[in-house]
Design a protein around this nucleic acid. Sequence first.
DNA 1: CGCGCTCTTGACGAACATCAAGCTCCGTGG
DNA 2: CCACGGAGCTTGATGTTCGTCAAGAGCGCG
Lengths: 263, 263
Amino acid sequence: MWAADCSVGKGSGTMAMITSEIDDLLQPFFRKILLRDELGMEEQRAIAAAADQQIHFSAGEDLVREGDRPMRSMLVASGFTCRYRLLADGERQLTAIHLPGDFVDLHSFLLKEMDHSVGALTDCTIITFPHERLVKVTERYPHLTRLLWLLTLLDGAVHREWLVGMGRLSATQRTAHLICEMYIRLESLGLANDRRFGFPITQAALADAVGISTVHVNRVLQELRHRALIVWDGGPMQILDWAALAEAAEFDDLYLHLVQEPR
Amino acid sequence: MWAADCSVGKGSGTMAMITSEIDDLLQPFFRKILLRDELGMEEQRAIAAAADQQIHFSAGEDLVREGDRPMRSMLVASGFTCRYRLLADGERQLTAIHLPGDFVDLHSFLLKEMDHSVGALTDCTIITFPHERLVKVTERYPHLTRLLWLLTLLDGAVHREWLVGMGRLSATQRTAHLICEMYIRLESLGLANDRRFGFPITQAALADAVGISTVHVNRVLQELRHRALIVWDGGPMQILDWAALAEAAEFDDLYLHLVQEPR
DNA sequence: CGCGCTCTTGACGAACATCAAGCTCCGTGG
DNA sequence: CCACGGAGCTTGATGTTCGTCAAGAGCGCG
């Protein structure tokens, strides 16, 4: 099933970085933070200085595995990744989808042992941050520390939103909700506009995200298409009627905390 | 339904505390941390000094509501509380159950606006921590800051575990899983032993936690009783066959990170 | 050309929701 | 003391949602 056919990638093309390149790769990350607070130049330099390598992963590869004890945390610079767990019967459940600017295992910095795996949904580029450098950041930059903490709290907020959907919304509503969430998160980073975004994942992966079978996700998508809410067939995901889609999903972006204020 | 009959409690009996009383109330909290790292005397004093008031809430009252912007965070000293959200049709979904020693809205410290509500499942006692004092903790005590951060990461880990269950386990498995989780968390704090613990919540609340109807939760409990896995009828929850219950639920306590090591 | 992956469709069954009613327990007021 | 009412628990009948099984179609790739 899933465990068998994807190796833990060391990732192809590990390489050291020059300063201007780091700054480019960190842009989505800075943007994500600047949507929610201010970030001083010194703090930006501190983050850039804590960055180590960039690594490329191919779709399907694992960045880290349940049970690992990574010595570094990973930030997505490009591409889509996901957190997931496998069950006894081989079924898979995603617990988050991560975009450029997201730390995927800042958790391991303090939790130490991974309680879930992280995989690449598409080809992606990652920046690594050695834990010992992150410790130093927390020793010297309290405000920056609070911002990193905030990022993990945002992950928690998204987890809760997914939980509510899983418990109380229909498969169609959850799927619509995920589409809304992906769009708002991408648009806030400047990576999408016009109610349209690239979403190059399989229906099977989408099924694992919303917690249904691949057969059923297919029918759900047909329903969303027939109700003229979306177009998604090989090309980008296009939202035809945002208001209707958001209402169907009971989507409210409060939980994404897209408000700039002192933290 | 739910929103109507429970007011936001200011809580009865707000009162200032004397030092020895604070220390008593903080015991479950210290214990929770000491299960996962060391905590110096100075750090313990710093936390105690940041505490402000104690407040009592009655079962059914809300501690904070979605949309609030609290100026303080709350730590449970006794009793059970829950995070939850209400949906358009009045249905409720819990996203976490909190025990003594748990911070229930350390999140609001950085997220600012509450994206969910917190309610008292039983009568409970709370200790409040003004946000401005928590800021000072993060400015002066980096290691303690990391520990507070860790606590919110643990919340996230539990969220993910629930998500996996909601997506891929049956109602019976999720219920069994929650029982296992409650027991291990309570036992680790010294608040339960002998495979038995007080669990004074209604079947309706349990249904809201596992995301099913009250009728179905009743049938699930009967199944667990008939399979001789638990006893739960008015008295404490008693686990008759831990191994079988944990196996049925695919329960593994890794996600609770009950390992003492430097963070 | 053939193989594998993804998407699609139909038939059927299992898990769970909903609706409705009755039960027990317990506190309250007459 | 008992009647009453409410909250929580229990049970049965019925319907919907979604999973499973099976098969086939389209498409890229070696």
